[in-house]
């Protein structure tokens, strides 16, 4: 594999992981606009553990995910009392606060950034991305996926059916934070350097875009969305400076024509029926 191709695929893998971190709460109807903050928690926690405490990468990355999940749970319980645009604003602010804390935390380099000694090869990144996708596929065949759909579709009815709406929302939010934290932890060890500025609003917003573009109805949406956003700008390199303009135009056009996202439930059902008829 050429260095260029490997580089693109690594970015794709990180984007896929991030997309599922956003997808999980979104599947329960909550927009988390602060996902970059949870990645930062995972990244800095894991990096600190390998750099200063002599941990190996695997447990450090797991601990990064756990730290992000813990913050997700503790912060999520009050934050999830808000809904819709207010939840988006609250999580947006949360992401900013986390990023600002790391920017001023001198023990992990502050504004100068934080070099990471231990190195995780591309294979580890691919492995994690595949693992996350498999985990999501597994999850989509369990009751939990039904609960998510019920809570998103009609929280009132979910409540009347005896589903703990707040519990499911908190679980989805926390699980998303864990995925983001694990992704962040590996990110730190692959690129060997992290800085708070990387985990910005822009990263959060882009990740949300992958998911909305791919579609939130099925578990395949985030994968397709992240793939599209990572690979298409690469293919448009021939367009030189204009490629982002072309890409933005395609995006606006697409959202106008197909606001439900690329992959929908109806589409998958149609395919399945065509498959069984053949």
């Amino acid at each position: 594999m050429s260095g260029y191709l490997t580089g693109v695929l690594v970015v794709l893998a990180f984007n896929v992981i991030a997309a599922y971190a956003v997808y999980l709460p979104l599947a329960a109807g909550q927009l988390n606009l602060g996902i970059a903050g949870f990645m930062a928690i995972g990244a800095y926690t894991a990096a600190y553990l390998t750099n200063e405490m002599g941990w190996t990468i695997l447990p450090a990355v797991v601990a990064g995910g756990a730290a992000a999940g813990l913050v997700g749970l503790v912060v999520g319980l009050p934050v999830l009392r808000t809904h819709g645009i207010y939840l988006a604003m609250a999580t947006f602010a949360l992401g900013q606060v986390i990023s600002a804390i790391f920017l001023n935390l001198d023990v992990v380099g502050g504004a100068a950034g934080y070099p990471v000694t231990e190195y995780a090869p591309p294979a580890a990144v691919f492995g994690l991305a595949i693992g996350v996708v498999l985990f999501m596929l597994l999850l989509s065949s369990t009751r939990f996926a039904l609960y998510l759909a019920a809570v998103k579709g009609d929280p009132t009815v979910a409540d009347l059916l005896g589903i703990s709406v707040r519990g499911i929302q908190a679980a989805a939010f926390t699980l998303g934070a864990i995925v983001a934290g694990v992704g962040g932890g590996l990110y730190a060890h692959h690129f060997s350097f992290i800085e708070a500025q990387h985990f910005s609003v822009l990263l959060s917003v882009f990740t949300v875009l992958y998911v909305l573009f791919g579609g939130t109805q099925t578990v395949w949406g985030p994968l397709v969305g992240a793939g599209f956003f990572t690979l298409v700008p690469e293919l448009l390199r021939a367009g030189d400076q204009y490629r982002y303009a072309i890409f933005a135009f395609v995006l606006i056009l697409f959202m106008a024509i197909r606001p439900q996202g690329l992959v929908t439930t109806a589409m998958l059902r149609l395919r399945r029926r065509a498959g069984s008829a053949a």
């Binding site: 009751r143 759909a149 579709g153 009132t156």
Partner: peptide, 28 residues
């Protein structure tokens, strides 16, 4: 769990799920 249940006004079935998934939710 004790045997009470409520069929809400306006039916409120989950339109993003299949018929069978709606039934399964009742037995969750």
């Amino acid at each position: 769990a004790r045997g009470l249940c409520l069929v809400p006004e306006g039916r409120r079935i989950l339109i993003s799920l299949s018929v069978e998934e709606n039934l399964l939710l009742g037995a969750h």
